[in-house]
């Protein structure tokens, strides 16, 4: 058994060696780590500072109207004296959590559905893929707006749920296509001849072979989820009990500070683009590793 562990360890080392070679992944991961530090730093920053720095309830009573960066407020404040730096930190936390969770959930759902549709085929394939088609054609933003109307209020959990349920079809289509071609491969046929059951074939033979691709799409989904959340918040459908980058932009816009306060407007915009970009870079790097045709020799 020890030998197996050694093999696993050496596999991980091999993957790490590949990752280290890819400039895209290195750059993407560096940016991501930066935001990760910001997200972790957010509660610490609030804890060590007085309540006026709380991104949601706090406001500096000594400040009148929006002011630019100062020693007390590194990025300045908004029009009612809330600290923008605190908001930015909290925003990275929200973006991170939401993006990650949406991508993990939708990848799990998408991979499972893709594998089932691809392997069993026939009626399963038709049903699941038509369902995917329907969901893909549903307009995501209006749907969210309608649902927030039904619930009366919007919370990040509903956004999470809706995004997970609307992002999986893209992944499941790719996984299904991959499964279809794998299903005809002799090693699957030989497993069937060996008497291996369907569930085991899916779990043991198909899933490990499609996972690298699923992982690549995971990074693409994170980008999508971050952008959609920002868009929703900007339109005023964010979670009002929380703070996100999109919401910062929305307040800036609503209060009419777009051209007056670049210190308010630019940081969240830049953060959204940078975080989305970092996942995109990781995705491109991963695709290079997964797709041998893109590999440079």
């Amino acid at each position: 058994m020890k030998k197996i562990e050694n093999k696993k360890a050496s596999q991980i080392r091999q993957i790490w060696a590949l990752v280290r070679k890819s400039t895209f992944i290195k750059l993407g991961v560096s940016i991501m780590i930066l935001f990760g530090i910001m997200a972790v730093f957010s509660p610490i920053w609030i804890h060590i500072n007085p309540e006026v720095y709380d991104p949601i309830i706090g406001a500096d009573p000594n400040v009148h109207g929006s002011v630019g960066p100062s020693l007390q407020h590194p990025l300045g404040t908004d029009d009612i004296g809330k600290d923008l730096f605190s908001q930015l930190l909290r925003g990275s936390q929200v973006a991170f959590m939401l993006g990650m969770m949406v991508s993990v959930f939708s990848t799990i759902i998408g991979a499972a559905i893709g594998l089932i549709a691809g392997y069993y085929g026939k009626i399963w394939d038709t049903l699941l893929m038509r369902l995917a088609d329907i969901i893909l054609t549903l307009p995501r933003l209006p749907l969210l707006i309608v649902i927030s109307g039904i619930f009366g209020t919007q919370s990040n959990w509903i956004i999470l749920l809706i995004l997970s349920l609307t992002f999986w079809p893209i992944i499941s289509r790719v996984i299904r296509a991959q499964t279809l071609s794998l299903r005809e491969r002799p090693f699957i046929e030989s497993a069937r001849v060996s008497g291996v059951g369907n569930t085991r074939i899916i779990v043991k033979h198909l899933a490990p072979n499609v996972l690298p691709i699923a992982f690549y799409y995971l990074t693409v989904t994170v980008t999508g989820a971050i952008l959609v959340e920002a868009g929703l918040s900007f339109l005023g459908f964010g979670d009002p009990s929380n703070m996100s980058w999109g919401m910062m932009l929305q307040w800036c816009f609503v209060k009419g500070y777009v051209f007056k306060a670049p210190y308010w407007m630019i940081p969240p915009g830049l953060c959204i683009s940078l975080l989305a970009f970092s996942f995109y870079l990781i995705g491109v790097g991963l695709e290079e590793m997964v797709n041998p045709r893109l590999k440079k020799r």
Partner: peptide, 27 residues
Amino acid sequence: QMIFQDPYESLNPRLTIHSTIAEPLIA
């Protein structure tokens, strides 16, 4: 049982030889 044409294709690249041969026995 069946022996396939292409030994590069008929063995799952992600399974060890042990797991591959164990498969019919486990089944």
